[in-house]
């Protein structure tokens, strides 16, 4: 067990560019590495990765980047990625591996944990080191956010965890910070897969909800798809992504990738505006970690108010137009002001 040392974060890339989740993981990893007084490595599998992006991983806190590049590692496929990771783990023996709870991390990590006979905890919100033992303490919400469970892996190594995207800030960039980039060769026999990616349909609307700084979400309270369009209008004004309750998705007012909650996405934006949403526990599970929550609902006892910072008790058909109008006025006032300043 003591042969295992060092903290790894699993950086992610797409088409050679390092993704933002990697920088969030560096924040987590740096804290743990400092507590354990061990080096922090960013491990990255991909192809033709931007040199500037690699250097940025070091500037943002990695002591080392371990890079495995191959054309076949460009798109994520579980078996080749797992085999390459397994080789790296067997070579370097890290004590902890942290990945994002992304479509890649959530698939690769459990596959890898089985191969390594390691313990894995999903969707951690807090990671810490247990004083004395040096074990990783992993805290995660369970049962729809009703409880928080703290989990550890006393024996098996490495200790593995995924963390939700947007649950930490990206690590700060320190210009001139130095570190090592290690390029690991990839043997061809690791790369076979039963899966091939033959196409991709980009749907930006699916992305921006998990990544957005602000989310405006609508629920059944809107009653018609026509009225639901006010959600988009407000999102526009607030430069926010559009979210929805399951009931709104079930009524086809909006597509499933926008659903927030237990069977949809978990979001952690700076601002979450819930309109005509009752705040069922399954919905709360997906948004209660937002920094500021605003609710508009005509039922003063709606559960959503229990997780809100500011609530408007009223009919959305009355409140929304006024809110939209005020925001528009404010924007236009701001625009003419800066025009004056400019002219």
């Amino acid at each position: 067990m003591s042969d295992y040392s060092g903290i790894w974060i699993l950086a992610e890339q797409s088409a050679g560019r390092v993704l933002g989740i990697s920088h969030e993981l560096l924040t987590r990893g740096r804290e743990l590495a400092d507590k354990r007084k061990v080096p922090l490595s960013a491990v990255l599998l991909g192809n033709n990765v931007s040199e500037a992006d690699l250097a940025e991983l070091i500037e943002r806190g990695a002591d080392q980047v371990i890079l495995a590049e191959h054309a076949e590692l460009d798109a994520f496929r579980p078996e080749p990625h797992t085999r390459v990771m397994q080789r790296l783990v067997e070579k370097y023996h890290p004590e902890i591996i942290i990945a994002g709870a992304t479509s890649t991390g959530r698939t690769l990590m459990p596959y890898l944990a089985v191969k390594l006979h390691a313990g894995l905890t999903a969707d951690c919100t807090v990671l810490d080191i247990e004083p004395g033992t040096g074990n990783l303490l992993q805290t995660r919400p369970a049962i729809g956010g009703n409880i928080l469970a703290t989990i550890k892996t006393p024996e098996a190594r490495p200790q593995m965890a995924t963390v939700r995207p947007k649950s930490t800030r990206p690590a700060m960039r320190q210009a001139g910070r130095t570190g090592e980039i290690i390029r690991e060769p990839v043997a061809d026999d690791l790369l076979s897969s039963g899966i091939s990616r033959v196409g991709f349909v980009k749907d930006e609307s699916t992305a921006n909800i998990s990544d957005a700084k602000a989310v405006v979400a609508g629920g059944r309270g809107f009653k018609t798809s026509e009225k639901f369009k006010m959600v988009y209008a407000l999102a526009d004004e607030l430069q926010a992504a559009v979210g929805a309750s399951r009931d709104a998705v079930d009524r086809a007012w909006i597509t499933y990738p926008h659903q927030v909650g237990l069977s949809g996405k978990t979001v952690t934006p700076g601002l979450y505006v819930a309109i005509g949403i009752s705040g069922a526990i399954q919905h709360l599970a997906g948004m209660q970690t937002a920094e500021t929550v605003v609710a508009i609902n005509n039922d003063p006892d709606a559960m959503i108010f229990s997780v809100a910072d500011y609530g408007i008790v009223g009919d959305l058909s009355e409140v929304m137009p006024v809110l939209l109008e005020r925001l528009r006025e404010r924007r236009e006032a701001g625009a003419s002001q800066s025009e004056e300043a400019g002219g």
């Binding site: 313990g119 919400p141 409880i147 703290t150 006393p154 024996e155 500011y310």
Partner: peptide, 24 residues
């Protein structure tokens, strides 16, 4: 056969104070 152990379970505290404004 389980590598992981649950060591503690607690209830998250909901610490928001909702400022409610009536719009009627």
């Amino acid at each position: 056969g389980s590598p992981t152990r649950v060591v503690k379970i607690h209830r998250p505290k909901v610490s928001r104070q909702c400022e409610k404004a009536l719009a009627n």
